[in-house]
Design a protein around this nucleic acid. Structure first.
Lengths: 152, 152
DNA sequence: AATCAATAGGTGTATATACATATAAAATAA
DNA sequence: TTATTTTATATGTATATACACCTATTGATT
């Protein structure tokens, strides 16, 4: 869908400004599709993100700040997200022996299992709505990274 | 910055999946820059979005659902965002005469004024971090809209 | 006209963001 | 060693998202 129709306006001050809004809208669009699927697994987008990060290092543990560094949204409140995951027994907290300030997080068997089935469902959904070629995806990645060149 | 460095991983299952994460991360990056500037005006990203929408139709009023339809994030809780703006006297609520279910929202002089100064500040910041050409912005818009072709 | 369904907006709840602050532990300086 | 600073995490608060539900009003159906 054209951005004009998604936002019911065609008042864009420039192509670059339109691109900004287009990125924000597309991010919302992607998130809403993902969240809808994750609901069946009683997971939020962010809880899923944390589980994926933990699986990436499994069977190693990760401390809270190392998870935070890998989050898509850097201002995520990781301890609180871990709270919810811990209640559902999808992760486990232990205090680090070497540095007692650190909390080490491990994904549980149950966490791995729910991550596997939810990822499989998400992959199917993403494949079914896939419209861009690999070359286009590469170009998109190039443009987004160029856009962020002035990292703050 | 490369996505690999932003997320401290290089485990992407495909260019398309990487593009998805790249869009989400770029959206967060853009929002955080904008929000930081808007803080000086005691505005959130979403409050600013509502003010812009209202200005687009000024001096006409807009009802809540027409604002909601124009929001970037469609699941925004518009009545609540208007609550905060109303407290700050940046917008005004009136009940529609023709349909008493509808609440009509108008931006106030004060709202227009704060919108003008904040927009001017944002434009400056955006110009200072601008790294892509108009042609690249067009291409980005094309790719994002192609990505969303399967609108749900 | 009376009833029922649809619509608009408001409100409630769980979770998240964004950011400030608190607390405990570790690292550094005096 | 003691005091100070830094670091890691947790917690508090305001606002937002996501979604369910409530109420008033309108429109449609009988």
């Amino acid at each position: 869908m054209k951005l004009e129709n998604a936002l019911l306006t065609n008042k864009f001050s420039s192509e670059a400004q339109k691109a900004t809004l287009n990125i924000l809208y597309t991010a919302w669009w992607l998130k809403s599709i993902t969240s809808k699927e994750l609901k069946d697994f009683d997971l939020t987008h962010e809880q899923y993100n944390v589980l994926r990060i933990l699986k990436g290092k499994y069977p190693n543990e990760l401390c809270v700040k190392d998870i935070a560094r890998r989050m898509i949204e850097k201002s995520s409140n990781v301890p609180r997200i871990i709270d919810r995951l811990e209640i559902k027994k999808l992760v486990k907290r232990t205090v680090s022996e070497s540095d007692k300030r650190e909390t080490l997080i491990t994904i549980t068997k149950s966490g791995l299992s729910i991550l596997e089935s939810s990822t499989s469902k998400l992959n199917k959904v993403h494949a079914s709505i896939q419209t861009i070629t690999q070359k286009e995806a590469e170009q998109l990645n190039y443009l987004l990274e160029k856009l962020r060149a002035t990292e703050v």
